[in-house]
Design a protein around this nucleic acid. Structure first.
Lengths: 190, 190
DNA sequence: CCTACCGATCGGTAGG
DNA sequence: CCTACCGATCGGTAGG
């Protein structure tokens, strides 16, 4: 057993916050997961709140990195949308605890931190709106309200962490294709 | 000031749970909202957990009552879907605290209660799947996976409580129409 | 519904 | 990272 790093603690905190919530996690719980005392955590972080900030900020960075990668290679809006959807799924599955904490516990950040995270989030969502707009301009998409439609798409994506089982019957490629199809065509026949 | 009823306390608890979460709410906070002491709440309920059960069960009943009303008058699947969407929006706006607590805090119920609530929820979601199926049979809808598509639709609907402002520019009629259109047609032109 | 509590647990600190 | 704590707060109870 070597010594723990700050990163080890942030990762364990993400898991706890995702499952039990920020207020449902005690420093002693967290220490228990790591094999140390709750009070020993204070050798690595200033307080419980710092851990929430670190977890949430990590997820925000991952989402934005994904959006940048998806929009780097310009191609048609439908393909860009597919890459955005696939990237979101990847972050949600590969960094599930951080992503879930980002989505569910960010409200408990202190005002200053929350504003910064809200900014991160707005940047990310703006990528979806821009993709929708470019599709409308190109004539590929109809004249949807990009604000509302961006919210709908992200609602479908953000919920994935609440029901998707990576070891279940649907793999992530199929999921991305199915959601892309749903977003593009809806349920109507033809 | 007349005496409080159990109902008054359940309503106040819903508000607290929706805003601060179950674990972020203390009985003293709740008493403060009601103008009584935290300990006085125990004259009306057996414990904090009973309040979570009451709030969540109320929301579950409202969602199911809405689904029954929406499917009572048989008509084409697209219209039924519109009524389901509109009903969900109404519950989410008119009973926002209970609905949000239902969606976010039900995981903190004790196993037995959680199972019952999960049952309520499954019944509700099944109504969406049945409507999709009847649309596929009638040829109105394409051959979507009804499980996945039901989840997508409910994801869009459940997220409404996280962003929608009833006093904002979008009224609930317009929202229902816009979501119905999105679910039916997606974003593709034509 | 209040008074007057209870033991348990909370986030956090001093000193090593 | 542990020992040994701290004051504050937690859910809850007995008795009125």
């Amino acid at each position: 057993m070597s010594r723990l790093t700050r990163d080890d603690i942030v990762i364990a905190a993400g898991r706890r916050f995702a499952e039990y919530g920020y207020h449902g996690t005690s420093m002693r719980d967290l220490g228990g997961d790591l094999g140390i005392l709750g009070s020993s955590i204070y050798a690595h972080v200033g307080g419980k709140h710092d851990l929430l900030v670190a977890v949430v900020e990590r997820a925000g960075s991952l989402f934005n990195a994904s959006a940048e990668a998806a929009t780097r290679e310009g191609s048609d809006p439908s393909d860009t949308l597919h890459r955005l959807i696939r990237g979101h799924i990847d972050v949600l599955i590969d960094h599930a605890p951080e992503a879930r904490t980002f989505l569910n516990e960010a409200t408990f950040l202190e005002p200053e931190d929350r504003r910064r995270v809200t900014g991160q989030r707005d940047r990310y969502e703006a990528t979806f709106r821009r993709t929708l707009e470019s599709g409308i301009v190109s004539g590929d998409f109809r004249h949807v309200d990009v604000t509302l439609t961006g919210i709908y798409i992200l609602s479908v994506l953000n919920a994935i962490g609440r029901w998707y089982d990576p070891d279940g019957p649907v793999d992530r490629d199929a999921l991305a294709v199915d959601i892309h199809e749903f977003v593009l065509r809806g349920v109507t026949a033809h």
